[in-house]
Nucleic acid binder design. Structure first.
Lengths: 162, 162
DNA sequence: GCATGCTCCATGCATCTGCATGGATCGCGC
DNA sequence: GCGCGATCCATGCAGATGCATGGAGCATGC
C-alpha cells in the first residue's frame, strides 16, 4: 500500500536514511559556511548583516517589513530588530512606517546600503564559485538545487510543534 | 579544452549556477534547522552542546581532543573551550590530559553525558524524519547525501584564504 | 642545549544573541 | 462601538559568542 503523499512516488525513507542525509547536508553547509565566512569579502559587515541587505536588494522597492525580513532569517525577532537598528546607525538601511498598519516597520535599503550589498555580493559569489565548482559539475549542481528546493518547500506543509 | 579535474567530467558550472545552488542549500538548511531547534527535544541543552556530545559519542573511547572537537564545530576555539567548561560543570563530560602532549585537553563523555546524548538523539532523529520524509523519497535522499558528501569532501583539497 | 617560532588551550572584554516581557495596534465577534 | 485575543515590534537582562591576547608546551635548526 502506498502512502497518500502526492508527487512523491518512491520508497518511503527510513528514519536512518533521513537522519544520515540530514547530517550530510548539515555538515556540508557548516563546512562551506565557515570557509565562506573566513574569506575576506565581508568588509565591516557580518554574514547576518549582509543577508539582510541581500534580502532587501531582492525585494520590490528594496523594502520589506521587519516581520518579512524575519521569515528567512537566521535570527530571532529581537535580535533582528537590533541588527536593523545597527544597520540604520551605519546608514545602510532606513526605517519607516508601513502603509495601513501602524504596528509595522518598513526597512528600506539606502543607496549606501545597496552599494555595499553589490560590492560584497560580487566578491561573495566569486568565493562561492571557488569552493563549489571544483566539487560538482553543472548537472549535479542543478540536481542538488532541485532537491534542496523541494526539501525547503515541503516545510510549508508540515505542521510545527505547536 | 577540459579542465584538469579528476573524476568530474560534466560541464563546468557558471558562477551563477554555483551561487544559486549554494543559496538553495543554505536556505534549506536554515529553514530545517530552525524547525528542528523549535521542536521540543533538547531538554536543557542547546543544539551546539548536543552536537559536541554527539561527536564524542562517535569517537573511539568517547574521547576527543579539544582541537579535534573544533574541527567540525560551529564554534570558534574560545567559545568551544567555554562550552566544554559548561558541559563539565553539568557533569556531562570530563576533561583530562592527552598522552604525549601536555598542551592538549582530552574531553570524554561521562555516563550521564552518554545517556543525555542517546535520549536527545532518539527524539532528534524522529524529529528529522518528520520534517524530511514528506519531502523526498529514499532514492532522492541517497542522491542528496551523495552530493553533499562530495561537496564537503572537496573542501579538503581547496586552499583557504591564507 | 638553547633560541625561535608554532601549536594548543584559556581568559579579559566588548558585543551579540535569546528569553521574557511590555506597549501599541489590529482583527473579529457581538 | 466595544471588548478581547492576536500580531508586531522594542527593551531589560542574563548568558553566549568572537576577537585579541597570553601562557605553556612542542618542534626544529643550529
Amino acid at each position: 500500500m502506498t502512502s497518500g503523499r502526492g508527487r512523491d512516488h518512491g520508497r518511503e525513507p527510513t528514519t536512518r536514511e533521513t537522519a544520515e542525509a540530514w547530517e550530510s547536508l548539515f555538515r556540508a553547509q557548516v563546512t562551506l559556511l565557515r570557509r565562506l565566512q573566513r574569506d575576506d569579502v565581508w568588509g565591516d559587515l557580518t554574514l547576518r548583516e549582509y543577508d539582510v541587505l541581500f534580502a532587501l536588494s531582492r525585494a520590490p522597492g528594496q523594502t520589506l517589513r521587519l516581520r518579512d525580513l524575519g521569515e528567512g532569517s537566521l535570527l530571532t525577532q529581537p535580535s533582528l530588530s537590533r541588527l536593523v537598528e545597527r544597520l540604520e546607525d551605519d546608514g545602510l538601511v532606513a526605517r519607516g512606517p508601513v502603509a495601513g498598519d501602524a504596528r509595522g516597520v518598513a526597512v528600506t535599503l539606502t543607496d549606501a546600503g545597496a552599494r555595499a550589498q553589490r560590492e560584497i555580493g560580487r566578491r561573495h559569489v566569486r568565493s562561492i564559485h571557488r569552493f563549489v565548482a571544483p566539487a560538482l559539475d553543472a548537472d549535479e549542481l542543478a540536481r542538488l538545487r532541485e532537491l534542496t528546493d523541494r526539501l525547503r518547500a515541503a516545510q510549508r506543509d508540515i505542521p510545527g510543534p505547536r
